[in-house]
Structure formats: C-alpha cells, structure tokens
Amino acid sequence: MQSGPTISLTFIVSFGALKGFFPILQQGFFVRIMTGSSLEQVLTEQMGIEEGYIEKRISTIFLNGRPVDNLHGTLAHDGSILSLSAAMPGLVGATMRRKGTYASFRSAIAYREENDVGTRRKNEGLIEVKLFNLLMAELGPHFFKRGIYVRADELSDLISPIMADLRQGRGLILFGDRPVSADAVKEILKDMGPDLIQVFVIGQKDVVP
C-alpha cells in the first residue's frame, strides 16, 4: 500500500444501486486491522460484527484459502486473505463448515495456527477480505459504510457497469469531500493504477433525512 495521505471516494447511491458494488465484495477488498489478533477479535472488535451473527450465519471461514475451525486460536497476519461465507450446499459445502460433521474430509487443507496466540505482537496491517453469497447483501453495506480499500485499477473495472447510471446523475460521488463527476472518477482511478484507494458506499436513505 502507498504511504502518505489517504485518498478516498464516496459513492452516495440509492439502495437498489448498492448491489452494483457487490462484485467488489466477492473479488476481495482490503481492511486495516491490528495484525496478530485472533480472528474472533478481528471480526468482532475490529470489524464490528456481532458475535451471534458470526456464530449463526458465518458458518464457513477461510484464511489464506484454508478452512478455519477455531476462530479463537487462529491469528490474522499482515497480508492474510480472509473469506467469509454462509452455509453452503453439497457435500463439499457441508465439509467446509466450521467444525462441521464432515470436516475430516478436508483435513489435508484445514488451517492450523503455528503461532502462540497469547504472545503475538500486534501491529497495524492490511488484510484482504472476501464476502460470498448471502453475506454480500448482509455485511456488504456494513463494510461499505466503514470504508474499504480497493486497488484503483481493479475498482475501475468492477464499477464500470454502474458508471452509466452515475453519469446520468443517479447518485453523488465525492473525491475526499469534493463532488466529482463519473468521468473524473475514471481519470482518477486510471492515474492511480495499482495503488489502493479508500472507498465508501452509502445508501441515500442514510444521508437524506
């Protein structure tokens, strides 16, 4: 990630248009966290997701592509990839569930923490987060409101299908705190290339009384 001041884009759009940003969620975005924390701490304390929701809804979790069974005993590191999914169909869907009945089927790839959870030093870092299926609609707005980081060149591709709507004035775009046009956004993202940009997406009902 680049050093220096954070560059941000804020999209204020209708609730219906929010879905147009969901491809970012399944492709992956970045979030700042205190690394060396357990996944349990990252999800609850740092990302603000309720414990009950995690237990009931986020039944499938991968860290670096490995299914995780123990959130308390697994650490997030700088550069980790954390993927979250609701319960999935199929034998393999059931197999990937946390502590699921058929978890032994994928024991060859299960995540095993090699560090001591209690003694790990904490530093600020970035992890990549992916949200799949039902969690896109349920957690996506939460992350969009808090702000996420996305590679500028990837963002340009991911939001291109909704830019036509934004060009026609359906929504407002802020670059920092300054309104900008959809065409200007395209240029900004092009100039930034692979650098990360902070992105907020806010539903109009959240800003219009």
Binding site: T60, F132, N133
Partner: peptide
C-alpha cells in the same frame, strides 16, 4: 453458489 467457496478452498 459453490463456485466461490470451492475455488477459495483450492
């Protein structure tokens, strides 16, 4: 719906 998670699992 399985594509993303089976892919993620490698």
């Amino acid at each position: 719906v399985l594509t993303n998670i089976v892919n993620e699992a490698g």
